[in-house]
Amino acid sequence: MGRQQSCGLPSGTKRRKGFVFSMDIIIAVAFGLLLLIIAQGFLSVSRDSLSSLQVSRTGSDIAAALDHQGVLDTLDEDAIAEQLEDMLPVNYQMRLEIKTNGEGEELDIGESLPANREIFSGRRVFAVTDGGEISDYGMVQYFIWVK
């Protein structure tokens, strides 16, 4: 009672004012949250092209590395798969489809293509060297996506 007097307002008026103040805070916070949610919505629907490019270039770099290391030349499915696993970052998945000219060999290495992922693809050609001579030519098509 003493505190009410020090405030100088009847207790009903003070409660009403407190209620209005509380409502004011709630409405303001709700409005702020609404704007943040709208902002988040905008961000989530817009694609980050840099990350897309990063995924694509990771695939390109891995295919190039397999080529330059001579692993593709082996045409050995297990060796290529092992090397691919070593090089592929954990949050990515990749598939290689290799086709050769002379032998007509076709190798499918890695995961199956997912249905609901953004997949990036590219192709390379390579010469197969065996015993100090060019024995065949091959083409590798890679597919890469984020897990």
Partner: peptide
């Protein structure tokens, strides 16, 4: 700009691999 950039990347991949193949043939054969 992403689509043209990806196109350039694909073209670069193909170009460098063909270059590498021709270089390998020259050196080996």
């Amino acid at each position: 700009q992403l689509i043209p950039m990806l196109g350039l990347d694909r073209q670069y991949d193909l170009f460098t691999s063909i270059e590498g193949g021709l270089r390998e043939i020259i050196l080996v054969e």
